[in-house]
Computed example of a mutant assay.
Amino acid sequence: MNILFVTVFQISEQKGGTERTTARISNEMRRRGHKCYNLYAKPIGDMFEMTEFDGIYTNYSPESVRDIIDSQQIDKIILEGAFIMVKNVYDGRAKASRKPSMLFVHHFAPGYEPYFNAFYSIWNQFRYAQSLSNRVKALVKVLIYPVFKPYMDASFHKLYKVAYSLCDKIVLLSPEYSDDYCKFGNINDKRKFASIPNAVSFDEFIPLEDLSKKEKTVLIVTRLDEVQKRISLAIKIWKRIEDDAELNDWTFKIVGFGESEHEYRKMVSTLGLKRISFEGRQNPVGYYKKSSLFMMTSLFEGWPMTLNESLQFGCVPLVYDTCASFHEIINDGENGYLVTDKNEEEFYHKMHALMLDANKRMVMQKAAIESSKRFTLDKIVSRWEKLLNE
């Protein structure tokens, strides 16, 4: 089978969740004998190790899409969250002699997009822009925000509807998301939906004998973005942990980077916290292996890669219950905890109890590892092959 993966960004496992998923799926597809091609809109620079494909293209005009389809005899087109490219790909397919199926994959919880146009997010884009041109663009958004916000929100609603109309399948991360997609896109038809979760990010699982080597460390691996990730809530919970004399041998590590890091560092300083560290951009595997607990305080996610990762390395997750997909990943009280959103008291008490009960942690760590094996790359790619062969 010849598959064209259409993406907004050039593909590298190190870029982000969407790109990592695309890289792992395409690599396994190629290993199984399929040919995989990538058409992307935006390069990501030289700091990343790029994923190999049987062919890579950057021109997504309808004429170029037509030529790719016919020259490479494309059988299936998978659009990885690339709303902005749907119309051109559809028009290119219409011009081609071959008519491959188009599958659009939504990598987030449907309806999340307006949050990224919140004023807080736009203002931080201006404050922490790395170049003059980006700073000017962000300033324009700030100045015209009363007009910009409703315009962008309306455009996202339209993009959902266009993708559903033009594509043959809409692939969501959870079957629970179909209603949300329909509501946000004002769609009354559910016949095109399918669901496939993300695979675990790594091929290794921590050996059970290594669980005894874990340290008394709480871990977060994330992009530092307050609008979505709400790390300020995790820091507030950690303040209660540091104030608890019974837990003075525990530490908290935050792996990742992003535009909200300055605010988080300031918050930590203001609260006088001493056992919390910002680790920056790192390979997280070593941190997962050493850490005992994992926190997630996100307002929304799709199928979070880091939650899968925490499970496969026996790092027990405690998660604010904000997304339907969490219930497919976590069996509450068995391989992790789902906590009522923004209930700091509940979060603290569940974490406190786990910190003081090494036997309970060990039982849940073993359950976490076993539960993550539901999402091995082999199993997820087999589901993709089945869908593509329908």
Rank of each mutant, 00 (worst) to 15 (best):
A96H: 00
V142Y: 04
V142P: 02
D189H: 13
K366I: 13
Y348P: 07
V363L: 13
R265W: 08
K213E: 15
A118L: 09
Y145A: 06
R127S: 09
L271Y: 15
N88F: 12
M50S: 05
T18S: 12
A138E: 07
L311R: 03
E345H: 15
V381K: 05
M295Q: 08
I206C: 05
Q72V: 00
A129K: 01
F9D: 10
M102H: 02
F53H: 01
V316A: 03
K239E: 04
P43D: 13
I196P: 03
I276T: 03
M267E: 13
K229L: 02
T340N: 10
I187R: 12
W250H: 07
S201Q: 03
R98E: 07
S97Y: 11
Y115E: 14
E226H: 07
M364W: 06
C167L: 07
D244Q: 05
Y164L: 07
R24P: 05
A324S: 09
D243T: 06
S277N: 06
A324E: 07
E28W: 06
P100A: 03
K192Q: 13
L356G: 04
E261L: 08
F48I: 09
H34R: 07
F116C: 01
C323D: 09
V89D: 08
M1L: 13
Y177R: 05
R361F: 12
P150V: 08
M47D: 15
M85T: 03
T222Q: 09
A118M: 08
A109R: 04
S131V: 10
H34S: 11
I44A: 11
K379Y: 03
V339D: 04
L166Y: 02
P43A: 06
F184N: 11
P146Q: 08
R383C: 06
Y160H: 11
P62M: 06
F156H: 13
I78L: 02
Y337C: 12
L211C: 11
A194Y: 02
I44F: 12
T51D: 15
W384E: 09
S372D: 04
K15L: 08
I329L: 15
Y151G: 02
E263P: 02
M29N: 02
E226G: 03
P114R: 08
K76A: 02
S372C: 13
R374I: 04
L143V: 15
D332R: 14
E385I: 07
V6H: 01
I220V: 14
R31D: 01
R20G: 05
W238Y: 14
V89G: 03
